[in-house]
Design a protein around this nucleic acid. Sequence first.
DNA 1: TGATGCTGCGTTTTT
DNA 2: CGCAGCATCA
Length: 779
Amino acid sequence: MADPLKQERSDPPLPPAPKAGGIAARARAAAGPDYLDGLNLEQIEAVESLDGPVLVLAGAGTGKTRVLTTRIAHLLAAGRARPGDILAVTFTNKAAREMKERVGTMVGKAVEGMPWLGTFHSIGVKILRRHAELVGLKSDFTILDTDDQIRLMKQVIEAADIDEKRWPARVLAAIIDNWKNRGLSPADVPAGDAMSFADGRGKSLYAAYQERLKTLNAADFGDLLLENLRLFRAHADVLARYQERFRYMLVDEYQDTNVAQYLWLRLLAQGSKNLCVVGDDDQSIYGWRGAEVDNILRFEKDFPGAKVIRLERNYRSTGHILAAASHLIAHNEGRLGKTLRTEGEAGEKVTVTGAWDSEEEARAIGEEIEALARKGHKLSEIAILVRASFQMREFEDRFVTLGLPYRVIGGPRFYERAEIRDALAYFRCVCSVSDDLAFERIVNVPKRGLGDVALQTLHDYGRTNRVSLMEAARVLTTTEELKTKPRGALRDLVAAFDRWRGQLDQLPHTELAEIVLDESGYTAMWQNDRSADAAGRLENLKELVRSMEAFENLRGFLEHIALVMDVESGGATDAVNLMTLHAAKGLEFDALFLPGWEEGLFPHQRSLDEQGRAGLEEERRLAHVGLTRARRRARIYFSSNRRIHGLWSSNVPSRFLDELPEAHVEVREAAGGFAEPRSRFDAGSFSSRYDTPGWQRAQTRRGGGAEGAAGRFVRKPVTIEGEVVAKTGHGSSAFARGERVFHVKFGYGEVSEIDGNKLTVQFDKAGEKRVVASFVERA
DNA sequence: TGATGCTGCGTTTTT
DNA sequence: CGCAGCATCA
């Protein structure tokens, strides 16, 4: 390819430049283009500030995606740019997909997809494939997944004669990943860092690993960006062409960018300078995997003359929820600062409920969900967000018992399953004879009698003769080096691959895929497997082949898979959503349950130990992200007792609870009451912790028996900082239909329905409400 | 090569 | 406590 960029230059010519007076002015004069309808002033400003660097600080639920997509539509509609002139980067494929769709609906088929809208990685690959030879790769280089990466790392460590037991490959992989996130090539690794692995050999192992990647014609995820940096730095002409091409640049979730991504953007933005980044420093929750909040905090310094636009009007949550979230996050230092506001109703207060243990916590949440469901809430509009995935188990158990449909979001990924990776390895070998890692993976799967000895012989031959393993296998079937049995097996395998490769252009790729899986004996391997999950694996393989239909050929499919490790969720069923707080970012639900707000779990002890104040602040941002997922209801829980690693531990309510504003929070209590550390357990050195308001608050409500079986919701008066907010009830039987009652918040009313411990009351002023019996008293 | 038992570890995860 | 990964033995 003489000039890889040339072919794209066949875009239609730009329409004449708009006349002075500005697009915005003209647009408004003509009542404005309808894509601006319904945007608020700040949003419109963010859409129309096209020139120079722009930082859009978009708080949760302030219409961030809408601004981004409208801005793109505006660039196109106003004739500022052609689709190919715009670089729009996201982090996840999901975000890219959504943006593409939404731009599509706004601009219609005028945009035949935007070639440069995608994830950092997919755009990185696209650029890299065009100039691969300049960084020592061939344009058809393979992209390694984490699994390949670690296996390769193992080889490198063993080759360096280092004890892999003491210095595990996955640890080195993590370290190298980290360096790559920071934009560091082997030569750039600072001396201090290099000491961190195998007595200071980390740096040279990194270099060796990179060398192996080059001989394999492969790149790992980190390389996709790092090699771009190398390319741009070493070849000013190439960089200049992209700077010229990307006349407008947009970045989503800027607070999640790592150093390498920041450097990449900075190089590209030196051209047009029209870089618009959108993000929220209060939602930065990925510091532990290389994200630098600093990137967003420093934006104005990095890009002089940057315009900063704050989106502070929240369209998602009710007043109480928003106030709670804002008050909480205000405890962080080192933030750019935003004040979220809403013009919607105050809604229900955020509730905080204490439970005796995690089982009771799950039971209470299960009951509340059932109650919501009875009231006609859609289950898919309800979510439970946990800090750590082990918390999910309790809920799953409970929901199974209740027969309540649920789905886990996040979980183990489809493409990470062993059977899928095996199948993909077969396909990779068909497409590329030189994909050694793939070949290695499946050479003896299913078992073909090829053991360590045969594999070692292959490796040795391949290395000394500088040929791929497949080629080595081909040669070694004609020599005496291997025993007859493995030799025959290899001959069959190589012949099979030759045959399949010959069919690559003859047969539809889905058909070929089935043939490969059948003839290789892979399908049969699982059919003969009597273990419980074999059937599921076969089903997954079918699903894999089915998902290939959407692609033109095997190669296109593999490229997609390498970059897109997630699979479209079919989630059409109505089910409660269960996920981690991290997985919830970007989502929203009507009703939200937030269990496990205890010191040690949330904020997580490890975060505190390892990152100190920065760790605490990230945990707090996580709490903020959690709360702001809720549209109408947010219910927080904590358990006094929880079993962690098989041991029971009693816990103190999270400090985050103390950081919630009283006026927007209602404190409740589930069955069973509270741990009593001083008598039941030895509080010991923890006693200083009990000085917190949260603890004192808890103390006032302490009491009630353990295990909470029979006497549910029997309680002492509930107080917040001395103020009585609920009176002791006499249990569910205390009220009768038609009885007049009084509630501190809703005033006087009449009981119309009794459902166990919950009453439906027609309040004189507040209308119909469902309340817990113990929160009302006889009028 | 497969099965069994032992040790160690246990937050969050995209590409 | 429960699981994954590894080592050892048959």
